[in-house]
Simulated scan of single mutants.
Amino acid sequence: MRARTLLPAVLAAAVLTIAGCGADDGKGSGGDSGAASSQASSPAQSPVPSDGGGSGATGAEVPESLRFTASTVDGRPFDARTLAGKPTVLWFWAPWCPKCKAQAAETAKVAADYAGKAHVVGVAGLDRNAAMKEFVSRTETDGFPHLSDEKGEVWQRFRVTEQSRYVILDKDGRTVYEGVLPGGDGLSEKVAGLVG
């Protein structure tokens, strides 16, 4: 019985997700959208042991939104608490999405330009891990971590319902932007405003 009640919800989510990849209206919401905060990390950071709270890698207090773990597309453990204390860009993408592919170069550039000042983390979903790894290789976005979110847990945490979305958090883990940014245009300026 449970499968019968879940199937319509899963299908509805899939339709919304696919529709999001085709439309590129460039509209995003500014300000605090009320979505949970997100995560990001540089590849050099090692995961923080899970002790249920406390401080992140920078000694900053960890907001509830960054108290979760995941795995990267390369199978490494990832602890979002390592993101506390710095602005974070979460880039939600799918391997088959042309808008996501178009955002890849600018997202990688922002990750490199703001390394050490802000985090950029890809959150891959809506496909299998093998396709996610291939996308990272093909788009040359391996300079920052990508989470393999096959089950959609991180997407749900941040209330993301379609791929090709950015969720940008300030240093305190509050969402300050959520939207599309076609081709990644404007991403650098948004991060620059947070790092001062």
Rank of each mutant, 00 (worst) to 15 (best):
G186E: 06
R174D: 04
T139M: 14
S164Y: 07
R159W: 04
Q163K: 00
L169C: 14
P145Q: 10
D127H: 04
F135T: 04
G173V: 04
D149I: 02
L126D: 07
K171I: 09
G173N: 00
E162P: 01
D170A: 10
E150W: 05
D185V: 13
D142S: 13
D170W: 02
E140W: 09
D170T: 07
Y166A: 01
Y166W: 03
R128N: 13
F158W: 05
V167C: 11
E150P: 02
G183Q: 06
W155Q: 01
V176L: 10
E162C: 06
E134R: 14
D127T: 10
E150L: 12
A130K: 10
G186H: 05
S137H: 09
S148C: 11
E153G: 09
D142H: 07
E153L: 12
W155E: 12
L126N: 11
V136F: 12
R159C: 04
W155I: 00
L126E: 08
Y177N: 01
R138Y: 03
E153S: 11
F158D: 13
E140M: 10
V167K: 06
R138M: 10
Y166L: 05
T161Q: 04
Q156G: 09
V160Y: 07
R157C: 03
S188F: 03
L147Q: 00
V180S: 12
G125L: 08
R128V: 14
K151E: 13
P182S: 03
Q163G: 03
S188M: 02
V160W: 06
A124Q: 00
R157L: 15
S188N: 09
V160D: 07
V160P: 03
E153N: 08
D142R: 01
F144Y: 14
D142A: 11
F135H: 04
A131Q: 14
R128E: 14
G184D: 05
E162D: 13
D149E: 03
W155N: 10
R128G: 12
K133G: 08
D149R: 00
S188Q: 06
D127I: 09
N129H: 08
T175E: 12
V176Q: 09
K133V: 08
E150V: 13
G186L: 07
E150M: 10
K133S: 12
E134I: 03
P145I: 10
P182A: 02
L126W: 14
F158S: 15
V154N: 00
E178G: 10
G125F: 10
P145D: 10
I168L: 15
G179V: 08
V136K: 07
R174H: 12
G179A: 09
K133T: 09
F158T: 14
Q163F: 01
V180Q: 15
D172A: 14
I168V: 15
E162Y: 11
T161M: 11
R128L: 13
H146T: 04
L187N: 11
H146C: 03
T175Q: 15
K171G: 12
E134P: 05
S137A: 15
M132F: 08
F135D: 11
F144R: 06
L181H: 02
Y166C: 05
R159N: 13
Y166K: 00
H146N: 05
T175V: 15
I168K: 15
G173R: 01
V160R: 01
S137Y: 07
R159D: 14
W155A: 12
D142W: 05
